[in-house]
């Protein structure tokens, strides 16, 4: 097993943890953190797989895409936090009403 593979599999596991949190955490701030963890996992996979070039110099395209992705993740996180804040301000809720029990 090479180092890029190890890092990429770590990224997949991080994505899985984040996915679980996004689906099953009740508190909205936890959901936001879980979505960010999913993003971090995807970035780790892309950066790790970019290191597999024969020359040793990493492939710049996934690096540039991750850089773009980080900024989009920051924007999305800020938007999620703004939405949560507005929801809390208007309803006092910190989690979405449960649909499963109806």
């Amino acid at each position: 097993m090479t180092y890029p593979t190890l890092y990429a599999i770590c990224g997949v596991v991080l994505f899985g943890i984040g996915f679980y949190g996004t689906v099953f955490c009740r508190h909205l701030i936890r959901k936001v953190m879980a979505v960010n963890l999913m993003g971090a996992g995807v970035f780790l996979v892309m950066i790790a797989l970019a290191a597999r070039t024969p020359s040793g110099a990493p492939d710049p395209i996934p690096h540039a895409m991750v850089l773009t992705g980080i900024v989009v993740a920051v924007s999305a996180t800020a938007l999620m936090l703004a939405l949560i804040r507005r929801l809390h301000h208007q309803t006092g809720l910190t989690e979405l009403p449960d649909q499963m029990e109806h």
Binding site: V13, G16, V23, S55, A57, P58, D59, I61
Partner: peptide, 26 residues
């Protein structure tokens, strides 16, 4: 979700160890 992680990890495991990607074109 654990099954999903397993499948994707297996897919990464079976990727070729070296791949030029688009590095040469860039």
């Amino acid at each position: 979700i654990a099954a999903l992680v397993g499948i994707v990890s297996y897919a990464i495991w079976t990727l070729p160890a070296q791949s030029a990607g688009l590095a040469d074109a860039a």
